[in-house]
Amino acid sequence: MRYLMERSARLVVTLFLVSVITFMLVVLLPGDPALQVLGTDFTEADYLAVRDELGLDDPLPIRYVDWLGGVFQGDLGTSYRTNQPVLEAIVDRVPVTFQVMVVGLAIALLVSIPLAMIAAYRANTKTDTTVSTASLAMLSIPNFMLALILIFYLSVHLGWFPATGWVSFASDPVASLRATLLPALALAGAEIGVYTRLLRNDMIATLQEDFITLARAKGASTPRVLFRHALRPSSLSLATVLGVQVGVALGGSVIVETIFALPGIGRLLVDSIFQRDLMIVQGVVLFIAVVYVVANFAVDLLYGVLDPRIRKGSASATA
């Protein structure tokens, strides 16, 4: 309980500072929002009116409080270009990014957990070396490169998957998953490398512990030992990195969504940057940072589930 309180307090402080930095980021960057709203044809009076309306001449702390007040009411401002509410633009696009990320994560875990187990179980054999080298190679392939490789083989050559485009899950689940698979694989590539390496290392350590010997002595089969006894205590660093990977995947979605022409958050960010639509940029950066912070908060709580010793606040976890 104390653990939970402490973590929550930190969460609030971090979120507050994140909001300050996001706000400052957009304020400090060059570019006059009033000029964007006005377009090309306007008078001096129009200009001053718009600046006043947007509150651009108020002192910074007041602008920040105004903005934050809006944020709490779900008002992230409106796009200077299209007049669409920023929150609406984000909410429209979240499901796409989310779907790709979840499928990507599932693929990454499904591939890397068994791989890591085999490598750890046969540590320092040829199998292990092969898996380790392959995972190093996987994490050395930038996602935009992997995306192109996938498009080249699976869509240009074999024609199995569409190269670009998006179908929403609600309208046609099968077509939607087909459209999701390539981008998800592109995101999963590096993650497979990262997870496999981490889990292999942790698992090698776990497999040397007494309770594993005990489980074996009891006559538990190898898969049972690996999945039931060894996986959970080995997954602490995996959980940490999972939290970090949420950020990586959000960054990666910028690239993957651009390549595959998916209407997600990442593409929204890139497009808004090219169009210098500051309000959307601000909204998306805040949204991504908040998701990232909250995801890592969730991982913190997950520690307690994975290893009760942390929940009780004892000094050392797994030795």
């Binding site: 971090t14 950020g247 960054g251 991504i288 940072a289 990232y292």
Partner: peptide, 8 residues
Amino acid sequence: LAFPGLVL
């Protein structure tokens, strides 16, 4: 570090 690097 709460901001994903590429985004920032």
